Simulated scan of single mutants.
Amino acid sequence: MEDLTAKVHNIVAESLDIEVDEVSDDSLLYDDLDADSLDILDMNYQVRKAFGVEMAVAHIQRHFEEAGIRWLDEYGGVTDEGLATLNDFMPELDDGRISAGDRVENVFVVLKVGDLVALLQRALDENG
Score class of each variant (00 low, 15 high):
Gly68Gln: 07
Val57Cys: 03
Asp80Glu: 13
Asp39Asn: 13
Asp31Val: 08
Thr85Arg: 08
Gly52Phe: 06
Ala56Val: 04
Ser15Glu: 14
Glu19Trp: 04
Glu65Ala: 13
Val57Ile: 01
Gly52Leu: 07
Tyr45Thr: 12
Leu29Phe: 08
Ala84Met: 04
Ile11Pro: 14
Ala6Gly: 10
Leu29Arg: 04
Glu65Lys: 09
His9Leu: 12
His9Gln: 09
Gly82Lys: 07
Glu19Lys: 13
Ala67Glu: 04
Tyr75Ala: 05
Glu54Tyr: 11
Val78Ser: 15
Glu14Ile: 09
Val57Trp: 12
Ser24Glu: 05
Gly52Ile: 02
Arg62Ile: 12
Asp34Met: 06
Arg48Gly: 10
Tyr30Arg: 08
Asn10Tyr: 00
His59Val: 06
His9Gly: 11
Ala50Tyr: 00
Glu54Cys: 10
Glu81Met: 06
Glu19Tyr: 02
Asp21Val: 09
Ser24Val: 00
Asp3Trp: 01
Gly77Cys: 08
Leu33Asp: 14
Ile40His: 05
Leu28Lys: 14
Glu22Asp: 09
Glu14Pro: 07
Gly77His: 13
Met55Phe: 15
Leu83Ile: 00
Asp73His: 13
Leu72Lys: 12
Ala13Cys: 12
Leu33Val: 01
Val57Ala: 15
Asp3Glu: 04
Met43Asn: 15
Tyr30Asp: 03
Val53Ser: 13
Gln46Trp: 00
Ser24Gly: 11
Asp39Glu: 02
Asp42Leu: 08
Ile18Thr: 05
Ala13Asn: 15
Met43Cys: 03
Tyr75Asn: 04
Asp42His: 03
Leu41Asn: 12
Met55Leu: 15
Thr85Val: 01
Val47Ser: 11
Leu38Asp: 10
Gly76Pro: 02
Leu41Cys: 14
Ile60Gly: 01
Ser24Asn: 08
Ile69Gly: 03
Ala35Trp: 07
Asn44Pro: 06
Val20Arg: 11
Asp25Leu: 02
Val53Leu: 11
Leu41Trp: 08
Trp71Gly: 07
Asp21Thr: 07
Asp31Met: 10
Asp26Thr: 09
Glu54Met: 05
Val20Ile: 10
Arg62Leu: 09
Leu29Asp: 00
Tyr45Asn: 14
Leu29Ser: 00
Glu65Gly: 03
Thr79Asn: 13
Glu14Val: 03
Glu14Lys: 12
Leu4Ser: 11
Val20Asn: 07
Gly68Pro: 15
Ile11Trp: 01
Gly76Ile: 07
Glu74Thr: 01
Arg62Ser: 01
Asp17Gly: 07
Val12Asp: 08
Arg70Glu: 14
Ala13Gln: 13
Glu66Gln: 15
Phe64Lys: 03
Glu19Gly: 04
Val12Asn: 11
Leu16Ala: 02
Glu74Trp: 07
Ile60Met: 11
Ala13Ile: 12
Leu86Val: 01
Ser27Val: 08
Val57Gly: 14
Asp39Met: 06
Glu65Thr: 15
Leu41Val: 09
Gly68Ile: 06
Thr79Gly: 03
Ala58Leu: 00
Ile60Asn: 04
Ile69Leu: 02
Leu86Cys: 02
Arg62Val: 03
Leu86Asp: 03
Ala84Ser: 13
